[in-house]
Design a protein around this nucleic acid. Sequence first.
DNA 1: CCCCAGTCCTGCGGGC
DNA 2: TGCCCGCAGGACTGGG
Length: 278
Amino acid sequence: MPELPEVETMRRGIAAIQGGRIERIERVRCRRKPIRIEPVIATIRRRVIREQIASVDRRGKRVVVRLASDDRLVFEPRMTGLILLAYPPTHEHLRLRIELSGTRESQLLYWDRRGLGNVRLLSAEQFEEQLGPSRLGIDALEVTRNVLRDQLSASQREIKVALLDQRAIAGIGNLYASEILFVARVHPQKRCGRITRTQWQRIADATLHVLNEAIHYEGSTLGDGTYRNALNQRGQYQNHHRVYNRAGLQCTVCGNDSIRRIVQAQRSTFFCVACQAE
DNA sequence: CCCCAGTCCTGCGGGC
DNA sequence: TGCCCGCAGGACTGGG
């Protein structure tokens, strides 16, 4: 379930392909399994082959490889996508291989078990249109109390559901929304309109704290073990979760058996009924 | 504006 | 032991 910390870990893992020793894209190979890709592969090849890689960035839950031409190759892993330099978990689900020239041979792989993710080549204009500020909110690592308040306080939605809205804030998904609200001590069903200034401040602080902590541990590799970094190694943040997947277990803060699971917008939410009374 | 259910997909684990 | 079904949830869509 790549969210911001997992996607950022992938981005850092492949960042060595930018500039420097890596010269350019030499080949693009589609593997056996179909891939959601746009435009068609022939057009992608025509536009990327022999292009240099200018930078490797991230926009919310997407990795953005910017080429010297200013076209952008956007990887959106969704549930089970991985962006790798090597060691795909299975050969079967390898979807795309981009061969790069350089002093050392290099490659970029896109692997996706379920295939819900996608890869798109966008012009600078298309990128602005489809992934610009009108479609995708400010990056979650940049939030402040005032950004949260401006974006969400007019909403009557429950805060946990609102945090998942990528048009407001980009990068928070189901797992980190629960973790953030626990650290902020705000009840996940609290309506946005009823959240106080102090609570917005705590949510902003908790967002930065939790996401940076998760990046430090290279993200969360959950039960099915799908998520991996760019070298197919597991993340470790699952060992530091405070509430996610911990229903019925002891709260790390108050010590009570007060962690519950509820469903909001058809998704699991975990929280401590004692620590997040409001 | 918001909410909800359905869609895309695969693999897993529970229940019988 | 095998089969079916529900579940996981990111982003999007269509209907209310």
